[in-house]
Design a binder for these strands. Structure first.
Length: 276
DNA sequence: AAACATTCCTGCACGC
DNA sequence: TGCGTGCAGGAATGTT
């Protein structure tokens, strides 16, 4: 499901209702996620209070009492829903509700992920700093991502600029949908060799990246197919997408028909007149 | 029925 | 040769 805007929207929503809550019990119906959930997962999380909810790239971080953290990634198809009261916690989807976390106020947090590309992991704080999931991540788009950094990352590179924008070591949180959106607004074709992108284009990309993500967060993200927030509401940004999934439709700027091209095995969309 | 909001791993080519 | 890096492709998986 999620790129940065969807995860951040989820974080904000969950934060409102989850801070101060305590995990009472946990049940694991299907431990086989990207990595297997360990058998002691329920025992390790029980009794811990949620002190803060943070986000890094596309990861959600539950800061727990007793110096523990829970890292959650939603992969392609994951979702977290927070349901008030056990009574309306069901009916659970028997196949894809993999983890159920019961809280001290009777509410329930459910992790659902059909394709199971996602991740849930508990770390003692001491190990968290070195968590392999986080250690190679680049700067956050709103904090530390600069034109200079992107310029350096592109020099001498022959891969397409869109691949680089989706490389989590270059900037953390941009995925397939927003990469197309960002490059459309920066007027750079997704297929351009990264090393051939000019300094002024790099500056446009670096400036527009946080703008697009910020706007998407403001709309609670994009619901293209299945993403729902923790209340089951779809994101509203889908109606504001300018090129993604618009192949064959007129460019909103010039009317030229939007093209679809595969870059790095992912569908990419662009306007051949507006984007060089 | 091909395509998919992600990440990780492999193998090959190239340069030192 | 051996090692490091960049890049492309594939795999994990269930739905629509």
């Amino acid at each position: 499901m999620p790129e940065l805007p969807e995860v951040e929207s989820l974080r904000q929503l969950l934060e409102a209702s989850l801070i101060g809550r305590i995990f009472v019990t946990a049940s694991v119906r299907e431990p086989r996620l990207r990595r297997n959930l360990p058998p002691d997962f329920p025992a390790m999380i029980a009794g811990r209070k949620i002190e803060r909810l943070e986000r890094r790239a596309k990861y959600l971080i539950f800061v727990l009492s007793g110096n523990y953290r829970m890292l959650v990634h939603l992969g392609m198809s994951g979702s977290l829903s927070h349901r008030q009261g056990v009574a309306d916690a069901g009916p659970f989807n028997p196949r894809h509700d993999h983890v159920r976390l019961d809280l001290d106020d009777g509410s329930v947090l459910v992790y659902n992920d059909p394709r199971r590309f996602g991740l849930m992991e508990l770390y003692p704080d001491a190990d968290f700093a070195r968590a392999i999931e986080l250690k190679d991540l680049g700067p956050e788009p709103f904090d530390g991502f600069t034109a200079d950094g992107l310029w350096l990352a592109t020099r001498g590179r022959t891969t397409a600029i869109k691949n680089l924008l989706m490389d989590q070591r270059v900037v953390a949180g941009v995925g397939n949908i927003y990469a197309s959106e960002i490059l459309f607004r920066a007027r750079v074709r997704p297929t351009r060799r990264a090393g051939k992108v000019t300094r002024s284009e790099v500056e446009r990309i670096a400036a527009i990246t946080p703008e697009v993500l910020r706007e998407a967060i403001g709309s609670n993200g994009t619901t293209f197919r299945s993403y729902r927030d923790s209340n089951g509401e779809p994101g509203r940004y889908a109606t504001q997408l300018r090129v993604y999934d618009r192949a064959g439709k007129p460019c909103l700027i010039c009317g030229e028909l939007i093209r679809m091209v595969v870059v790095g095995q992912r569908s990419s969309f662009y306007c051949r007149r507006c984007q060089k």
